[in-house]
Design a protein around this nucleic acid. Structure first.
Lengths: 343, 343
DNA sequence: TTGTATGCGTTATCAG
DNA sequence: CTGATAACGCATACAA
């Protein structure tokens, strides 16, 4: 509470007891007489006593808060993950502090320092597409800060990770385009350094090969998710369109890229899926509203959040350091819409 | 930091000084010799000393964190407001704790208690459409917790408020439909209790009257933003469609309602704007992607957040209680798309 | 100019 | 069973 917060001391004074007795009574210690306990607990309830979490944090050297770093909360995927995290964190008495990196490695570092200085008990993070220097993260981790990665994970750090099955998701998406009769399928994806990018590329390539297509390096375009993303997408599409054998379909391998490609095609009056096929990763809820509704690969964002926080709390609350780390891989969902392609 | 966090005591020991000297040197107190200051500051930097914010909070009886309660962070409007809040809070050394009420008054109360118990220094809130009991909020406020309302404000509590000009925004939206030639314009809006609902209704009614239309009570439908919102919208639209004089246009007075109405019309293969005109409040970024792009009323969400936090920090940091409260009213933007109605 | 002592709210340790 | 005291990390009134 604020101003006149009631403390253990107030209770002690009012009841003519010592603070330690009150503290013990409140924590239901076995060494306090039932009578005293009753008295204390009743009075505490009456005056609506709430233990001061700050004092508790100072004493116990933990803050019962966990930090989350994502690039952007306005992104559906991330806000759904946060919802998942929150749904569990709250019931376990933890609060979450959200920081946005805005796809900037610099801001990410600042966020990290900020959260560390606020002594969060643990961290859940999806790194930026820019991040290449993991030293601070590693340092934090080695100093004992529990960390769980999700989505854009860092393989260089051995801890729990939660992702969706990127290879399979991308394989399915690409296969769907093939099944629809597209012959020249391009991939617009994120920065090469990212692990999930590699996986998504692998799924795309595997699907092509399995169906007798050759992988054309010119068909693979990387865009990083900077503030310039729309311009990068435009560049990528221009390059694709400029090829001798122009692609007839695009697989966009992230939420932002899907929206971006769609935006561009709309602006250029390109008909989807008649003129160009399009499929993309997306957790947005608008994809069924566009015309025709877009076929998407959807990640189980809420579950990803829940699993991430479960694993994190497990690390935080276990007495001795966790040694065997898991990488949880969840299935994505291919949501097929407007599946009939009118050629 | 975590484990081996370096404290003022460590510095003192290493330099053969007392903790108070170190503390003062770090805070650049005038009563410390330049030489000692230099020594302390250099050493502190070298070992990367970070003051423990928890200890600081306990001492200064404030947490340098502010609470935010919104119904849903996945809502573009709210995530943009949060971005605005965060942009300022971070630079002023405050962190934000976000809680979601999910349109439930019960969860809102729990959030409130949670944040109060975490001793936030201030609160920024947009209440649920369900909220009718303001007693806890009022209580908190009277105990000295600075509160700023935005969007769904509570007029019963005299403090700063930030909203957009709902009357004008709705007036403009309605007028736009009239200008497009629609004659029977329905309003789908939120719960009647909400102040912003009243304002949006007022704008809608004023526009009709000013243009020589009569306000038809049957054309006004209230839906509250519960988990059943889509069903409520369906009900509302069914009722509208069942009227003797069926409406030829709908003004949806919130983000969620706009999406919901659109979803329904799409599902029923109703052509917008040919068969039914549609205009709605929206801060989503997908409205230009639908076919044809939707005309919307957009709120200056980021600015709303920035102003809210500015006002809050002003309350928090002012020595004596603020007495003259402002209600900041910002202009909305009418973004006209697909303006030519092909009748 | 620097050091000592105290308190913020709580719990753990040690006495009684 | 209960009470006094110390400690968590920091800032500050008071002493020197």
């Amino acid at each position: 509470m604020k101003f006149e917060a009631v403390t253990i001391k107030d209770i002690a004074k009012a009841l003519g007891l010592s603070t330690s007795t009150v503290s013990r009574a409140l924590r239901d210690s076995y060494e306090i007489s039932p009578e005293t306990k009753r008295l204390v607990i009743e009075y505490a309830q009456k005056i609506n006593y709430q233990p001061n979490p700050i004092a508790l944090s100072l004493k116990e050297r933990k803050s019962r808060s966990i930090g989350i770093i994502v690039c952007e909360i306005a992104n559906s995927f991330f806000s759904q993950v946060i919802n998942g995290i929150e749904s569990i964190a709250n019931t376990r008495g933890y609060n979450i502090i959200i920081a946005q990196s805005k796809e900037s490695a610099e801001r990410e570092l600042a966020d990290l320092q900020f959260l560390a200085s606020r002594s969060v008990d643990g961290l859940i993070i999806s790194v930026t597409t820019e991040t290449t220097d993991y030293s601070f993260l590693k340092d934090l981790y080695q100093r004992g800060l529990p960390i769980v990665f999700f989505d854009r994970i860092v393989n260089e750090i051995a801890t729990h990770k939660v992702i969706s099955d990127n290879v399979k998701g991308s394989y399915d998406a690409t296969k769907h385009l093939i099944d629809q009769g597209y012959k020249n399928i391009a991939l617009v994806t994120s920065s090469e350094g990212l692990f999930i990018t590699k996986e998504r590329m692998a799924g795309y390539q595997a699907a092509l090969k399995d169906h007798g297509f050759v992988v054309n390096a010119d068909y693979i375009k990387h865009c990083n998710h900077s503030g310039m993303i729309q311009a990068e997408i435009e560049d990528a599409v221009n390059q694709l369109w400029g090829l001798r054998k122009k692609p007839d379909a695009i697989f966009a391998a992230s939420d932002k890229l899907t929206t971006g490609v769609l935006r561009l095609l709309k602006a250029r009056k390109v008909k989807v899926p008649q003129q160009v096929g399009l499929i993309g990763y997306s957790n947005a809820d608008y994809t069924e509203l566009i015309d025709p509704p877009l076929t998407i690969v959807k990640q189980p964002a809420f579950e990803i959040g829940q699993i991430a926080i479960e694993l994190l709390l497990q690390m935080i609350e276990s007495k001795r350091p966790v040694t065997d780390f898991e990488t949880r891989v969840l299935n994505t969902e291919l949501i097929i819409r407007a599946s009939t392609r009118s050629k």
